[in-house]
C-alpha cells in the first residue's frame, strides 16, 4: 500500500493510542475515584440521588477523625455526632491507624521470610538435580488448591496449639505458608532462565552452592525479588478470612478486619466507611505504583539474555 503523506498514519496511531489510554484510565480509575469522592462527602450528601461525583461540600472530617483519634489527640464521639465538626465519627475510628500498623508489620515480616525461605528453595529446584525435583514444584503449588474455607478451622487449631491466638505471629506464619508457594514458583521460573554456565563457572571457581546463590544469582534476580515481595506484601495486606479468626483485639487486628467491622457496625456512617476503605487502599496502591517497573521485568521470562 502506498501512503501519500507519511504523517497520516502517525496521527491516526497517536489518536488511537490516546483514545485507548483514556478509555483504560477511565475503566481503571472511575470506581476508585468514586470511593475517594464519597469519602470526602458528608453523611448527608453521600445519600444524594443522583450521587454527586464531585462533592458539593468536600470535607476531610473523616480523615481528620481517623488521625486525631488514632494518634490519641481526640476521643471518638460514641453517641453520634461530633459536636466540634458536626460530623459523625464511629467509635472504632481510633482503631484504624493501629490496625494499619499491624497490617504493615505482618506484611513486612511475611515479605522478609518469603525471601529467606523462598530464594534458597527456588534456587534448589531450578538449578540442582535431586530426587523428587520434578514433582516438588507441583506439590508445593498443590497446597494452594484447596479452598481456604475448608482450612479455616484446622488452621485455627494449629495456631492455638502454637499458643499464638491474638498474636501477630499467627498471621505471619500462616500468610507465609500461603504466599511462599507462589514466590517459589516465580523465582524458580526466573532462575531457570539463567544460563547454567553461570552456575558452573562459579562452582569451578570454588564457590559453594550458597555462595553461588548469594553472589551470582541474587544480584541478577533483583527484579524478580521485588516482584515476589510485592505479591507477598499485597496478599498479606489484603487477607481477611484467617485474620478474622485468629485476631481478637485491637492488639492484633489488621486493617481489613477493622474495615469489615465498620461495614457491619449498626451505627455505621457510609462516608466514614469509604474513608476507611481509602485508607486500606492507599499503601498497597502506592507500593504497586512505585515498584511498577520491577513487576514487568521481575516476571519476564528470559530477562537475562546472556
Amino acid at each position: 500500500m502506498i501512503v501519500p503523506r507519511p504523517i497520516g498514519p502517525r496521527v491516526v496511531r497517536a489518536a488511537i493510542l490516546a483514545a485507548a489510554s483514556v478509555l483504560l484510565l477511565a475503566y481503571v480509575l472511575a470506581p476508585v475515584a468514586w470511593l475517594l469522592s464519597s469519602s470526602l462527602q458528608t453523611e448527608r450528601e453521600i445519600v444524594s440521588i443522583p450521587p454527586h461525583w464531585i462533592p458539593d461540600h468536600p470535607t476531610a472530617q473523616n480523615f481528620r477523625a481517623i488521625f486525631a483519634t488514632g494518634l490519641g489527640l481526640a476521643q471518638p464521639s460514641p453517641n453520634g455526632a461530633d459536636p466540634a465538626s458536626g460530623g459523625f465519627i464511629p467509635s472504632v475510628a481510633g482503631n484504624l491507624l493501629p490496625a494499619m500498623g499491624n497490617s504493615f508489620i505482618v506484611a513486612t515480616a511475611v515479605v522478609i521470610l518469603n525471601l529467606l525461605i523462598g530464594v534458597p528453595a527456588a534456587y534448589a529446584i531450578a538449578k540442582i538435580r535431586f530426587r523428587g525435583r520434578g514433582v516438588a514444584l507441583y506439590a508445593i503449588l498443590a497446597t494452594r488448591v484447596i479452598p481456604d474455607i475448608a482450612l479455616v478451622v484446622p488452621f485455627f487449631l494449629v495456631v492455638r496449639k502454637l499458643g499464638l491466638l491474638d498474636n501477630l505471629a499467627s498471621l505471619i506464619i500462616t500468610y507465609l505458608a500461603i504466599t511462599v508457594p507462589f514466590s517459589v514458583f516465580v523465582l524458580a521460573s526466573f532462575f531457570e532462565q539463567m544460563p547454567d554456565d553461570l552456575d558452573r563457572a562459579a562452582r569451578v571457581d570454588g564457590c559453594s552452592r550458597l555462595q553461588v546463590l548469594l553472589r551470582v544469582f541474587l544480584p541478577l534476580a533483583r527484579p524478580a525479588l521485588v516482584a515476589i515481595s510485592l505479591f507477598a506484601f499485597l496478599a498479606s495486606w489484603n487477607e481477611f478470612l484467617l485474620a478474622l479468626m485468629f485476631t481478637q483485639t485491637a492488639a492484633s487486628q489488621t486493617l481489613p478486619i477493622i474495615v469489615a467491622g465498620i461495614t457491619s457496625d449498626f451505627t455505621v456512617s457510609f462516608s466514614f466507611l469509604n474513608a476507611a476503605g481509602v485508607l486500606a487502599v492507599l499503601p498497597p496502591v502506592a507500593l504497586a505504583v512505585i515498584f511498577e517497573r520491577y513487576i514487568v521485568s521481575g516476571l519476564t521470562a528470559g530477562a537475562v539474555k546472556g
Binding site: F156, R160, D166, Q248, T249, G261, S264, D265, F266
Partner: peptide
C-alpha cells in the same frame, strides 16, 4: 477481662471457629 470483638456480619462464623478450635 480479655475483651475481644469481631464484625457482626461474620460473628457467628468466627464464634463457631473459635468454639471448634477451643479458644479461651
Amino acid at each position: 477481662v480479655a475483651y475481644s470483638n469481631s464484625p457482626f456480619a461474620q460473628y457467628r462464623e468466627t464464634m463457631i471457629t473459635k468454639f471448634t478450635g477451643g479458644a479461651p
